[in-house]
């Protein structure tokens, strides 16, 4: 079984391309007068978050890599490094990404790491670089374990993961409207990912895909961007800071404050850590289902439209009351 295998760190090599693409997008917006917005402190915060993400990889990456190499030593298979194997690894890793991303929105412990990526009210190429510093602490590296146990070398798994992240860079833009229909049907695109970044009730918890949008269509989380419901970017409760430390850690601090308040049962404390964002022991906060139900109570005409299909038109008030 091959222990020593090296692949390039694709994300690091893509840094010059990231910078050039940001400049190109900025110029495009300046010349055309449309296609997105830039704001200095927002963009700088995003770029510093990106730099911090690379730094955290240097500092903490050994934990995940050590775990992966341990798995590799007990893996019964070695599929090698042929091109078809790398392609298969890329597709399966994208399925892995879909589920990690979905967990990132539905489990508060993982959301605490991912939330910073959604914390900008802008949507441009710098937003793509607003990445987590605390991914290691989510322990989501375990979701890669099946790939390694199936015989994909850890270095290859990390390499295709890097390619996945590079693919996702270009979809963080308003400068591109829609891609050709066949492309929109199969691939994650700027349009699909804009919807994912929306704080509108319709777009909450949709379009988790990395590269292939087919996973969302397969697992029932696909919501197409609507011309009559312009995406409002950011968080349901937007943060009021450009300080990268606060951006990186604000949800972890919130979890700590919630879970350590006096008078809670153990179950309630655990729910503050691991239930979907919006959980509260006294019902004082709204999760995404409650937000959608309240939206439908205000806008009953949206019943049955994309993003609201799960809500029964016959009993909107019941759900609104429950919310």
């Amino acid at each position: 079984m091959t222990d020593q295998l090296t692949f390039p760190d694709a994300v690091q090599w893509a840094v010059p391309f990231f910078i050039a693409a940001i400049l190109a997008e900025f110029l495009w917006i300046a010349i055309k007068g449309r296609g997105g917005r830039y704001e200095t402190r927002d963009a700088v915060t995003s770029l510093i978050m990106g730099a911090g993400n690379i730094a955290s990889g240097f500092l903490l990456g050994f934990i995940a890599y050590g775990f992966f190499m341990w798995l590799w030593r007990i893996a019964p298979l070695d599929l090698g490094t042929s091109i078809p194997v790398i392609v298969l690894c890329f597709v399966l890793d994208d399925l892995r990404y879909y589920w990690v991303h979905r967990f990132g929105h539905r489990i508060r412990w993982v959301w605490a790491s991912h939330v910073n990526h959604h914390s900008s009210q802008h949507y441009n190429l710098t937003t793509a670089l607003r990445q987590t510093w605390t991914y290691t602490f989510t322990f989501m590296m375990v979701v890669r374990a099946p790939l390694i146990l199936l015989g994909f070398h850890p270095a290859m798994v990390l390499f295709v993961g890097g390619l996945n992240l590079i693919y996702q860079f270009w979809i963080h833009t308003e400068a591109i409207g829609k891609m050709p229909r066949w492309f929109e049907a199969v691939m994650n695109t700027p349009s699909h990912h804009r919807a994912h970044h929306g704080r509108n009730a319709r777009y909450l918890d949709c379009n988790y895909a990395g590269v292939f949008i087919i996973w969302d269509k397969l697992f029932g989380t696909f919501v197409p961007e609507q011309d009559d419901d312009r995406v409002d970017y950011g968080l349901v409760h937007n943060i009021g800071t450009f300080n990268p430390l606060r951006v990186a850690f604000h949800e972890w601090v919130a979890i700590w404050r919630d879970a350590t308040q006096p008078g809670l049962s153990l179950r309630q404390r655990l729910a503050y850590c691991f239930a979907p964002p919006g959980y509260s022991h006294d019902g004082s906060r709204d999760g995404s289902d409650a937000i959608k139900a309240k939206h439908l109570a205000r806008h009953p005409e949206d019943h049955g439209t994309p993003g609201f299909e799960r809500f029964d038109k016959k009993m909107p008030n019941t759900q609104a009351k429950n919310a």
Binding site: V15, T40, L47, I54
Partner: peptide, 21 residues
């Protein structure tokens, strides 16, 4: 990598500020 990241952040910051963003 450090030069690219530092120079990129600095350059983009300056560009945005000087263009009124």
């Amino acid at each position: 990598l450090l030069v690219l990241v530092g120079g990129g952040i600095g350059g983009i910051t300056l560009l945005l500020h000087l263009t009124g963003k």
